[in-house]
Design a protein around this nucleic acid. Structure first.
Length: 271
DNA sequence: CCTCGGACCTGGTAGC
DNA sequence: TGCTACCAGGTCCGAG
């Protein structure tokens, strides 16, 4: 599920239940995630108070005085808050974080592309060391995209999905933002003007912001029973609509694979 | 440095 | 109904 908006929605959903609480136990049922869960992670976390939950790119960061727990949801991961009585773990419920309140933060991830890692106080985890700016921050704009794209020949869609350029732009929103900006996904990044990059950065911000706002309507799902984080009720213009009519011109939306990812665009409205 | 393809996994669905 | 092939919201890594 997790594009940036859903990770942020998860953060907002779990933070009220986790912040200020002490970790009673980290229960690891399956340690074979994208990277092995460190064997000493339960010991490192036990008794620690979670001071805050923040987000960097698509990583959730649980800060404690002893260090920071890094969580990534990969392609299929989710975190849910469970209240007492805590239901039995089901398939793919790999990790439980038991809190002193009696609540439980449960990690489920069928594909196991997610991760639970640790970083010591004051050190930047290697996975976070070379990340680009947050898309919703002021340091991300068209000027940055224009500057970093000079000389690059690869498709602009790959460029904006490169976490070293800007983080958090996943496949769905890359497709959507390029459509809204009127830019063909396969155009060379280095041959796009500053004006068009300003338009593109604006739409990236807009589409992520509105998706986060809509994600906010599903917060209760993180506490409740079946816990399927709702998919964004967001109106998608192109993603998943190959072969259907462009909402602007009525033409048939075309599909192409870029970097092995499904890419949908309108040949008329995107140049 | 840049770009590309493969890799890691499981589950759902389309097609035969 | 059953089997197979392909696809899926991410992103790291190594080869060229």
């Amino acid at each position: 599920m997790p594009e940036l908006p859903e990770v942020e929605t998860t953060r907002r959903g779990v933070a009220p239940y986790v912040e200020g609480e002490q970790v009673d136990e980290l229960l690891v049922r399956e340690s074979r995630l994208r990277w092995p869960v460190p064997a000493d992670l339960p010991q490192l976390l036990r008794g620690q108070r979670v001071l805050s939950v923040s987000r960097r790119a698509k990583y959730l960061l649980f800060h404690t005085a002893a260090g920071t727990l890094l969580v990534h949801l990969g392609m299929s991961g989710s975190l849910r808050v469970l209240r007492q009585p805590i239901p039995a773990a089901g398939p793919h419920d790999h990790i439980d974080l038991r809190l002193s309140s009696g609540d439980c933060l449960r990690f489920n991830d069928p594909r196991r592309f997610g991760c639970f890692l640790w970083s010591e106080p004051g050190e930047t985890h290697p996975l976070l060391a070379h990340l680009g700016p947050e898309p919703l921050s002021d340091s991300f704009d068209g000027l940055l995209l224009h500057r970093l794209s000079r000389g690059r020949r690869g498709p602009v869609k790959n460029f904006i999905m490169d976490g070293r350029i800007v983080v958090g732009v996943g496949n769905i929103y890359a497709n959507e933002a390029l459509y809204l900006a009127g830019i063909r996904p396969d155009r060379s990044a280095g041959r796009i003007s500053l004006a068009r990059y300003e338009r593109l950065s604006d739409y990236i911000k807009q589409v992520l912001t509105s998706a986060i706002e809509q994600g906010g309507t599903t917060l209760r799902d993180f506490v409740g029973g079946d816990g399927k984080p709702g998919y964004f009720a967001q109106q998608l213009h192109v993603y998943g609509r190959a072969g259907l009519a462009c909402k602007t011109c009525g033409g048939v939306l075309r599909e192409q694979r870029l970097a092995q990812r499904s890419t949908v665009y309108c040949v008329t409205c995107q140049r």
